[in-house]
């Protein structure tokens, strides 16, 4: 029987990918969950003992946790605000006909391909350095006092760097969506006397709604895990001013060797990410039915 035959071979073809991913997801996650209930520090081997929800109580009541949670939310919200707002503007701009449009578009999307450690270090040193940086020079040329970005506005500085990296992503997706907009509808509205602003609010924005949702959800998933930019610029400091949940877990695991506490933190991060993921899956799943 042909169908049975194809179905078996289809299953066979899928199984390596499915089994590997299943292992990759279930095994470490189960281990994290298990460790999160243990008192387990790599500096004290052989002292592991069951502690129930002790690690969670410790992690969640640690003052660093609430700071890290707020920092994470501010970082994600700040970057989303800049990239979605800026992305809409840049996409609208790139959608207009002008000379050298293709090359301008290549320049705009370039930051997305810069590895996080490079963009963080280039911004921190060559642009934002309080004495020799380019921004300091610009500020002084206009007679202002240069800002010591990473000392005075550490979290904001990181938001700017990460937003620079993700602006191209938002722009590209919104531009793709814009290009599928029916221009006749716009012309009809224009003839009926609709101004630029009302055309944007009543025609363009609703058309972009879906793309904006996708941008927000996908970026949120990635932004919750921002790590390299913090590691190479501030190390989470000064103090814990730029410590996010991701960074906090890293500190506990690889710097303090507190396996139990870090695992509890990891589980908390998973729960936070899942809240976003549920929405994202729904949006993408809807598209799959079409």
């Amino acid at each position: 029987m042909a169908t049975l035959h194809t179905r078996t071979s289809a299953r066979l073809m899928m199984s390596p990918a499915v089994i590997l991913l299943l292992c990759w997801m279930i095994v470490p996650l189960a281990m994290t969950l298990y460790f999160s209930f243990l008192r387990y520090n790599l500096l004290m081997p052989g002292m592991e003992e069951w502690t129930g929800f002790g690690n969670y109580t410790y992690f969640l009541t640690d003052p660093a946790f609430s700071t890290a949670l707020v920092n994470t939310l501010v970082l994600v919200a700040g970057v989303l605000l800049i990239t979605v707002g800026g992305g809409i503007l840049v996409a609208l701009l790139l959608d207009q006909p002008f000379f050298g449009q293709g090359i301008a578009r290549l320049l705009v999307i370039a930051p997305f391909f810069v590895m996080p450690t490079v963009s963080a270090l280039v911004w921190k040193n060559m642009l934002m350095h309080p004495v020799n940086g380019l921004f300091a020079w610009i500020a002084r040329s206009f007679g202002f006092q240069p800002v010591d970005w990473f000392a005075e506005l550490p979290l904001f500085s990181i938001i700017v760097i990460v937003a620079w990296q993700w602006l191209p992503f938002a722009t590209l997706i919104l531009l793709t969506a814009l290009q599928s907009l029916d221009s006749e509808q716009q012309e009809a509205a224009e003839m009926d006397g609709a101004g630029v602003v009302s055309r944007f609010i009543y025609i363009v924005l609703p058309h972009l709604a879906r793309a904006i949702t996708v941008v927000i959800l996908i970026q949120t998933i990635f932004l919750l895990s921002v790590f390299a930019e913090i590691l190479v610029t501030t190390n989470g400091g000064p103090g814990i001013q730029t410590t996010t949940i991701t960074y906090l877990v890293y500190v506990q695991a690889l710097l303090q060797f507190d396996v139990g506490g870090a695992s509890a933190g990891g589980i908390v991060a998973v729960i936070l990410a899942n809240i976003v993921a549920v929405f994202l899956i729904r949006v993408i799943g809807k598209n799959l039915d079409k």
Binding site: A17, V18, L21, W24, M25, V27, P28, L29, M31, T32, F35, I221, L224, S225, F227, I245, T246, V249, Y250, A253, L254, V259, A262, S263, G265, G266, I267, A269, V270, L272, A273, N274, V276, A277, L280, I281, I284, G285, L288
Partner: peptide
Amino acid sequence: MWMLSTKMLPAVGVLVP
């Protein structure tokens, strides 16, 4: 969809193991 969901697992969730 399940494969997609594994991509959403934050890396710190499995860093320790």
